[in-house]
């Protein structure tokens, strides 16, 4: 095979991955992490976010379903968010102008995928190998270089596996939940409970 033929083959690779690679990453990861660090400091200082709420290893940021009020949606950035869904067995996506909170984006994903309100958002946590340091007056955060998104939703989602192949449902959810922020995730973990 010649290089040109391999180049042509690469042109036929998975469309969702190709599309994903085109999504803008306007800020560098270190800036994102710096933002997270700043958010962490604010969160600790104000007692808004539930750090270490699940005793999980080094979470960079976590939001649970009961924290959306405390998060203060009026202060949350709105942006065009791409919501993925399957239609007639094919991946589709549309943009919606939404507040960038995982709960609201999960709600938009449910609506696009025909998933009912009985399926509840429970928690969303970003696991990073960064570390936080705090004392009585200051807090700082050492940025990591891996990010895994852990999403927990209610077990009612499994009922939809009869209507749609699980891999399709999970793939559209993964692309939606990992695509709206500027963090480049290394993994996605979905839990149902």
């Amino acid at each position: 095979m010649k290089a040109a033929q391999l180049y042509e083959l690469i042109g036929e690779l998975d469309e969702a991955a190709v599309y994903d690679a085109a999504q803008p990453r306007s800020r560098r990861r270190h800036l994102i992490a710096a933002g997270l660090a700043a958010a962490a400091c604010l969160g600790i200082a104000a007692g808004i976010w539930g750090w270490r709420r699940n005793s999980a290893p080094a979470p960079a940021y976590s939001v649970a379903s009961d924290s959306s009020e405390a998060l203060g949606e009026t202060a949350v950035e709105f942006r065009d968010v791409r919501i993925y869904y399957y239609h007639d067995g094919e991946m589709q996506s549309e943009t919606e102008y939404l507040p960038c909170t995982p709960e609201r984006i999960f709600a938009a994903w449910k609506a696009r995928n025909g998933v009912g309100d009985e399926v509840r958002f429970i928690a969303c946590r970003i696991e990073s190998n960064g570390t936080e340091h705090s004392d009585s007056s200051t807090a700082s955060y050492t940025v990591g270089d891996t990010f895994i998104l852990h999403l927990t939703v209610s077990a009612e989602l499994a009922a939809y596996y009869d209507k749609m192949p699980p891999e399709q449902l999970q793939e559209s959810l993964r692309l939606t939940m990992t695509g709206y922020s500027e963090i480049e995730y290394d993994g996605f973990d979905l839990k149902m409970e």
Partner: peptide, 25 residues
């Protein structure tokens, strides 16, 4: 194509994007 797709899925997300930015785009 399926094998290359499988290889790409085995890569961390950032590496996969880098590969596609170079060799697809």
């Amino acid at each position: 194509i399926a094998q290359i797709n499988a290889f790409l899925r085995s890569l961390p997300e950032e590496k996969r994007r880098m590969f596609l930015r170079r060799y697809w785009y």
